[in-house]
Amino acid sequence: MAVTFKDVEHVASLAKLSFSDEEKEKLMQQLNEILEYMEQLNLLDTTNVEPLSHVIDLSNVLREDKIKPSLSRKEALSNAPARTEKFFKVPKVIGER
């Protein structure tokens, strides 16, 4: 299953990234190389193997429902490229998701 030019455009738009046509060509080539490399995994017979979701053997890591201090608003907003006194500010978003 090869990655097409259209696939690259689709994934880029989902990630809200924009590329020039040359960049898209290059990415398409790189993605295909990665997938080809990964193809080796298909040499293994996985008929009776359960899909793995986690590599470490841990379960039920849970936390008591107790409030811990939050950041101050000043700290919380401090990394934002744009902000008001109380809010993060982002370019106008229209419509619903």
């Binding site: 936390r63 107790k66 409030i67 811990k68 201090p69 939050s70 950041l71 101050s72 608003r73 919380a76 907003l77 109380k86 809010f87 993060f88």
Partner: peptide, 17 residues
């Protein structure tokens, strides 16, 4: 995370990393 779920808090005060 341990941030409060309190409704109607001042904006961006119940937040953590």
């Amino acid at each position: 995370c341990g941030c409060s779920t309190k409704f109607g808090s001042e904006p961006n005060t119940n937040v953590c990393p």
